[in-house]
Design a protein around this nucleic acid. Structure first.
Length: 342
DNA sequence: CTTTTTTA
DNA sequence: TAAAAAAGG
């Protein structure tokens, strides 16, 4: 599920309101997957309509997006395109993991172990074509821009950020940094508390901003070296060396300079490492996109979500909040451009 | 996850 | 009034 570099970062935490007026490229797959994983009943059952269609992602998208708009943030959803051939191995691995977890979920229910059931159920989360299409339908009715990446969505988001078309790439993964995004936002949520997996503990979850330049300077490495560290750790495109995480990877690359020297010094076998480097450093992207939002289609949203058994009262309340926020945002935006003019 | 309801 | 618990679909 992407590289995890959290142990190497000292993230700057911000309030959502501090991101007012900023356009953010959201990793759609990452966000939807998170909703599918977390929005569940205590026994692990996802939210569903009366016909059994999963609705967890629609609930998450509606309420989270409403909050982002309320904070004056302009979301732009970036969807993954065709996966790189080197990603097939991890996709197959994930499929196997999902199938195993489905069996273990059932077992846990039989044993009456609710905690275990929830955790196993989370691991069964799968992005189906129905979930992808219903997400796109809702996002389009919300009037929010969508971008179709030629390949990896994080690569596309990074490109858009480099160009300055968006202020940051938003994802829980750090991959957009490897793809060259100047700014990454994590935990772009309203909730301040999240359960620690497997434990009865909670920790504060704050929105984090990671500036790529500052991050690399603090570690005293280049972007190319960061990619090499992650190849040692393992990415979605290669398995990595067992036992090497961020700390050891950083030390090895700093001691030897680059992956070639680490490989020859330690006799590691990392086939196709140059291809993995190219995925991140020469990623595919498209210029065929827009980041501007259009009018919200209120009736379409109500019609759609009522069909998924959402309460009309709740939908309307949320849409009212969005309307108020959109009006405020527009007047503030025109005020900002007026100020800039004079 | 986010909202709503219940509890202290 | 705020924190905890439950519900949402």
């Amino acid at each position: 599920m992407g590289v995890n570099l959290s142990s190497l970062t000292e993230p700057k935490t911000v309030e959502l309101s501090e991101l007012e007026g900023k356009t953010v490229a959201i990793d759609a797959y990452n966000t939807i997957y998170q909703f599918l994983s977390i929005i569940r009943q205590p026994d692990g059952q996802p939210l569903c309509d009366r016909t059994g269609r999963v609705t967890s992602h629609l609930s998450g998208l509606l309420y989270r997006t409403a909050n982002l708009i309320t904070s004056g943030i302009e979301p732009c959803f970036v969807f993954d395109g065709k996966p790189h051939p080197l990603k097939m191995a991890i996709l197959a691995e994930r499929k196997e993991r999902r199938e195993k977890a489905a069996d273990e979920w059932e077992e846990a229910i039989e044993e009456g172990d609710i905690k275990k059931a929830f955790s196993k159920a989370q691991q069964t989360s799968k992005m189906t074509p129905e979930i992808r299409e219903s997400s796109r339908e809702l996002i389009s009715y919300l009037g929010l821009p969508m971008v179709d990446a030629p390949s990896d969505g994080e690569g596309q988001a990074a490109y858009m950020c480099s160009k300055g078309d968006v202020w940051a790439a938003a994802s829980q993964d750090f991959d957009s940094l490897l793809f060259g995004a100047p700014t990454l936002v994590r935990n772009m949520t309203i909730t301040g508390r999240r359960k620690v997996p497997g434990k009865d503990q909670y920790k504060d979850v704050r929105t984090e901003v990671i500036d790529s330049k500052e991050f690399l300077e603090s570690l005293e490495i280049t972007k190319e070296q960061l990619v090499d560290i992650c190849i040692l750790m393992g990415t979605d495109f290669n398995p990595g060396i067992p036992g090497i995480g961020p700390k050891k990877g950083l030390k090895l690359i700093k001691d030897h300079g680059d992956l070639e020297h680490v490989i020859s010094s330690k006799s590691y076998d990392i086939p196709l490492y140059q291809d993995v480097r190219d995925i991140f450093l020469k990623s595919k992207y498209t210029d065929d996109y827009s980041t501007t939002s259009s009018e919200i289609q209120r009736d379409k949203i109500i019609g759609m979500l009522e069909g998924y058994d959402f309460s009309k009262e709740r939908i309307e309340g949320t849409l009212d909040r969005i309307d108020v926020a959109r009006k405020n945002n527009r007047s503030k935006k025109s005020q900002r451009s007026l100020d800039a003019w004079f």
